[in-house]
């Protein structure tokens, strides 16, 4: 509360005041994803080069001949962001070594949506992480192909209705469990993997700053509420993100060199997932039995995560 009341006093210490994703972009009202991207840019600072996948964040920020970007930014295609970022990193490294650019450290960042990370961009990301490029990759996960019109991806959660996995007389909508992308990145044995959500801005900024400080590959999976695609009120995007965390649907955690930590914002006791589902049109069709089935999975997955945090924490080898 004090932080909000004394914002001008505290804010400069908490966050870079300079906007590196400027206003005037074309994102939907209530878009939590563009808020996350803006916070990410602030946390990264000016010495950053961003490679972006095709998607909402790309089209809203780079309509020729305008740009919202105050940092160097490149978009090439949909599925290859991590490979483009690999090339940027390699190019800067070579030029710095040969003295053709100044000697400052520049962080290379790849960003993509859930489709550009978990589906079509999966191979390029796995390759870049395996090769060990000095790169942060951020997945802005809004749980479907929102830019093309709310089609299902492997990031879409069980039971959500999308335009290619619609709820119907014989369908609950998405019939598969969400792909566990952070765990797949942990399996790449990279130094840093974290989950984050712009509903917890200071936690998100801290994680971006930590990833920035790591010389090597790192991955942040950012839960990004999409009021348009989720059919939820645009003034509730931040609250919806908080509910995802408080119900354990999207737990916040970090994995540093294989050691798991639940983030400080994680509640001791989870709320029932129905609290999260009820504000969203994409889940409106679910029956009590459907919700019970999903609740069991969420509880089981969270318990697994807690076990990892218990047995795989730093200093506990």
């Amino acid at each position: 509360m004090n932080i909000v009341e004394n914002f001008d006093l505290f804010a400069p210490r908490l966050i870079n005041k300079k906007e590196l994703l400027s206003s005037g972009h074309r994102a939907c009202s209530g878009c939590a994803e563009v808020l996350a991207v803006r916070l990410m840019a602030k946390a990264l600072g000016e010495n950053t080069v961003i490679a972006s996948a095709t998607g909402c964040m790309e089209i809203v920020s780079s309509m020729f001949p305008t740009t919202a970007w105050e940092v160097p930014w490149i978009h090439v295609a949909f599925e290859n962001t991590a490979a483009v970022a690999s090339g940027v990193e390699a190019g800067l490294k070579a030029l710095r070594k040969k003295g053709r650019i100044d000697d400052r450290y520049v962080k290379v960042v790849g960003m993509a949506g859930d489709g550009g990370t978990m589906d079509i961009g999966f191979q390029a990301l796995s390759g870049a992480m395996e090769r060990g490029h000095d790169m942060l990759f951020v997945c802005f996960d809004n749980e479907a192909y929102m830019n093309t019109g709310i089609q299902r991806s492997s990031g879409t959660p069980m039971g959500a209705s999308t335009t290619t996995a619609p709820a119907g007389k014989v369908s609950i909508g998405q019939k598969t469990w969400k792909k566990n992308m952070p765990e797949i990145l942990v399996a790449h044995a990279i130094p840093y993997v974290a989950t984050a959500c712009p509903s917890y801005p200071l936690d998100f900024i801290r994680k971006i700053e930590k990833a920035k400080s790591i010389k090597g590959p790192s991955y942040i999976h950012c839960f990004s509420v999409c009021p348009t695609g989720w059919r939820s009120p645009s003034n509730m995007a931040i609250a919806t993100g908080r509910l995802a965390v408080e119900t354990g649907v999207f737990p916040l955690f970090e994995v540093e060199n294989g050691h798991y930590h639940l983030s400080p914002d994680m509640p001791k006791k989870l709320r029932p997932i129905k609290d999260y589902f009820k504000g969203q049109g994409r889940f409106r069709h679910l029956t009590a039995d459907d919700i019970e089935m999903i609740q069991k999975k969420v509880t089981a997955e969270f318990n697994k995560l807690k076990e990892k945090a218990k047995f795989l924490k730093t200093g506990n080898e």
């Binding site: 290859n80 490979a83 483009v84 390029a124 390759g127």
Partner: peptide, 23 residues
């Protein structure tokens, strides 16, 4: 810098990124 990518798609993507830096 010699980048042994995981596909030709990534080879072209990586040289695009690198060429973008002026390399």
């Amino acid at each position: 810098e010699f980048v042994t990518v995981e596909s030709e798609h990534s080879a072209m993507s990586a040289v695009i990124g690198a060429s973008g830096t002026g390399a």
